[in-house]
């Protein structure tokens, strides 16, 4: 009896998962189809075009006008650095919100969240001018530089992620740090040596979220990066469909697929980190 229920549950579990995967993949198949369609239109008449071609993929790696690999590398570089720093800044702030009792703690955190909801219409003008201005004093962080773009991305470090992480820190027992403090460690050391390792799952999740966000971010990057050698993938890809009608849909589709692979690989390999540190047996409060 018990076994039957378990099997039934498994079957339902698989059914849901595979339906969801099919749902997720459905349009992607058409993107793949567009990427091997020689005509360069977005909607092929058939899922498998009569004449299929790999020329769009070949173009990505050989065409000198579109340094696709360079864009890919730029994107990886910018998003890895930006999301690593983001995770660190976010952890610092979450720790403060979780452990210290200061006035306006909850109000402060909620204000952070509320402010993020502002639909900043003119962000592009403001950030352009801001970076121009920073660049005058620190040229390596100005317009058309990757540090400048990273700087902008770090603006989003505090926000909903902070809440998520604070929630996780809240569940880590206080006694661990207190023991360390008694042993003579400073607060900061306790934070780095005890809390951070325990919080690895949430750090990983936040890293992945930020990484994907920064990796596919287009709007800010397109304002700040003005030279095609500095482009991130999202900005570079846009060149393929720059004018309304002369769009290289095939190349764009191929690039979207190749461009998503690194993210999937990174996500796949980081997943082992998402297993709760709290279940790992390290914490028996």
């Amino acid at each position: 009896m018990h076994n039957k229920v378990r099997i039934l549950k498994r079957i339902i579990q698989y059914a849901v998962i595979f339906t969801a995967i099919a749902f997720a993949f459905f349009p992607v198949i058409w993107i793949v189809s567009a990427s091997i369609n020689p005509g360069g239109t977005l909607y092929g008449q058939k899922l498998i075009p009569e004449k299929s071609t790999l020329e769009h993929y070949k173009m990505l790696f050989t065409d000198k006008r579109y340094p696709f690999m360079l864009w890919l590398w730029n994107s990886l570089k910018v998003s890895v650095i930006a999301s690593s720093i983001t995770v660190f800044l976010c952890a610092l702030a979450s720790y403060a919100f979780s452990r210290f009792h200061f006035r306006g703690r909850r109000a402060g955190l909620l204000t952070l969240l509320l402010i993020q909801m502002f639909p900043v219409m003119l962000a592009f003008v403001a950030l352009y001018l801001l970076l121009l201005w920073i660049g005058k004093y620190f040229p390596f962080m100005g317009l058309n530089t990757h540090p400048g773009l990273i700087l902008v991305y770090l603006g989003g470090a505090l926000g909903f992620n902070t809440w998520l992480m604070k929630g996780y820190f809240d569940t880590i027992p206080h006694d661990l740090e207190e023991a360390a403090l008694i042993d003579g460690a400073t607060r900061f050391q306790a934070f780095v040596r005890i809390i951070l390792p325990l919080a690895r799952p949430i750090l990983t999740v936040i890293f992945i979220l930020t990484f994907i966000g920064d990796y596919s971010e287009y709007l800010l990057a397109s304002i700040i990066l003005t030279g095609s050698k500095k482009y991130t993938l999202a900005v570079g890809l846009n060149l393929f469909i720059t004018s309304d009608y002369a769009r290289h849909w095939g190349t764009f589709a191929a690039a979207s697929i190749v461009g998503s692979l690194p993210v999937l690989i990174i996500f796949f390999s980081l997943q082992k980190q998402i297993i709760s540190g709290l279940t790992g047996g390290g914490v028996k409060g």
């Binding site: 800044l89 976010c90 610092l92 702030a93 952070l112 402010i115 993020q116 502002f118 900043v120 219409m121 003119l122 962000a123 003008v125 403001a126 950030l127 001018l129 801001l130 700087l151 902008v152 770090l154 603006g155 989003g156 470090a157 505090l158 902070t162």
Partner: peptide, 17 residues
């Protein structure tokens, strides 16, 4: 550290707006 970036890249554009 987080607030500095927040102020610069989130709050400043809002003020500008």
């Amino acid at each position: 550290p987080g607030l500095i970036f927040f102020g610069l890249m989130v709050v400043y554009p809002i003020i500008y707006n």
